[in-house]
Every structure is written in C-alpha cells, then in structure tokens.
C-alpha cells in the first residue's frame, strides 16, 4: 500500500443517507477475481443511464446528468462528502477498491458502517467522521458555483477549507500509522508469531474441541 500523503482536493457532495455498498459497486462487478479496475463502475447504477456489465467500456456509456460525479464542477474530485451510515450493507472490499480506483482518497461523513470503515484503511482511503453540523456546513459550501477545495493534513489531523476555515479531526492511532506508513498488516502480525503459537498451545489444553476439525 502506498503511504498516504497530504493533498488539496475537490469535494464532491453525495447528498443521501445510508449509501450502501451495493450502490457503491453493484454485485455484477464482484465477479472479478482482481483487485483493480473497479473505478469506471463506481456508483454504476447512479452514474450511468444504461445497465452496466463487467468488462464494458464505460467511455461511450450514457451518463446520468443528475448524478454528482457527472457534474463538471466536481471533475477530478478526491474527497467525497457523504451523509450518515455511509458504506452500510455488504462487507465487499470492492467498495473501497472502486472508490480508490476512481481517485477518491478521503471520505467525509457523520458516520460510517463498521466493516466499510475498516476496509478503507486497508486500501489507503481515509474515512473521516465529522460532526453532523460540520457536514451540513460543508454540503452548503460545496453546492456553490465553484467546487469546495479542502487541504487534508493527516499527520496534523486537520482539514483546511479554501476560505481558511480549519476543522480538526480524530483518528485511531493505529489506523493513522497504517495509512502514513503504508504498512503491511500481515507482516506486522507475523512479527508476533511466537505469541500466536503460545496462545494456540494454551488453548489446545483449555478448549481442545476448537482444534478438532
């Protein structure tokens, strides 16, 4: 995973609550056995007017002009502004894969579904929880004739709007380190192989039925 670096990006406002992972990446695209190439199908049913199928060349598909990602103001957006319970539903990691592949690096919302939130950190995507009134203010700002731009400082845990407004944010220390260093979780866990083996040895005595498969 590439380390997360600070950047300034355009905000695309997706004004609906409970956006589920079926909406983020519909099921027909889950048949891929790869980790890449999901970006063109991100929000497929909302973004295009025709039914999407895996392998389609999306450049010639009819776009839904009412969908936010098709609005000229938000082209090249790297920050997605969303509402509560973003990423609910299925555990599919294809959702953060599609968001990252499209170019998003940060998602701002009042709340996220747990599994999605967890999956983001495995893929260099930073989900930031903000107070509902802060999110409301960002929606108001991002609907103007000029797209809102935000500077994202992860080490400083600070968002700076293009008018200079500063918004600090919270993040779990482990997840922050994981993003900043682009760490390989498995390699880190395997550094504790002895502890895992010791645990297993103890459990084989305490609960041998769990090892009888």
């Amino acid at each position: 995973m590439e380390p997360f670096e600070n950047f300034t990006g355009v905000v695309a406002p997706l004004d609906r609550a409970n956006v589920d992972t079926d909406a983020i990446i519909p099921k027909q695209f889950l048949k891929s056995i790869k980790r890449t190439g999901f970006g063109p199908y991100l929000f497929d049913e909302l973004r295009y007017l025709d039914p999407g199928e895996p392998g389609m060349d999306c450049r010639s598909r009819p776009l839904n002009p009412d969908f936010v990602l098709n609005d000229p103001r938000y082209q090249g957006a790297q920050i997605l502004l969303a509402r509560e319970n973003f990423g609910c539903g299925s555990s599919r990691e294809h959702a953060p894969w599609a968001l990252a592949d499209f170019g998003f690096r940060v998602i701002l919302a009042p709340s996220f579904a747990d599994i999605f939130h967890n999956n983001c950190f495995k893929n260099g995507l930073l989900p930031i929880v903000l107070a509902p009134e802060t999110v409301e203010g960002l929606f108001a700002r991002s609907r103007g004739p000029q797209a809102l731009r935000i500077d994202v400082d992860l080490p400083g845990q600070l968002l700076t709007l293009d008018d200079g407004t500063r918004i600090p944010f919270e993040i779990d220390a482990g997840n922050k380190a994981r993003l900043l260093e682009g760490l390989d979780d498995i390699g880190l866990t395997l550094q504790h192989a002895d502890a895992i083996r010791a645990y297993e040895a103890r459990r084989q005595i305490e609960a041998p039925w769990l090892f009888a498969v």
């Binding site: 999956n119 779990d172 979780d185 395997l190």
Partner: peptide, 23 residues
Amino acid sequence: AFGIGTSEVEHVLATQCLIQRKS
C-alpha cells in the same frame, strides 16, 4: 462472528488473527 473484507480474509489465512478494537 463477524464479516470482514478481503484484506482481512487474507490476514486470517496468513496469521489466524485479526487486529481489532473492542466494540
């Protein structure tokens, strides 16, 4: 029992563990 993403499926395959915080 809980659902996980593909990166964690790989993590469990490789280590039989997950990094978690208590809910």
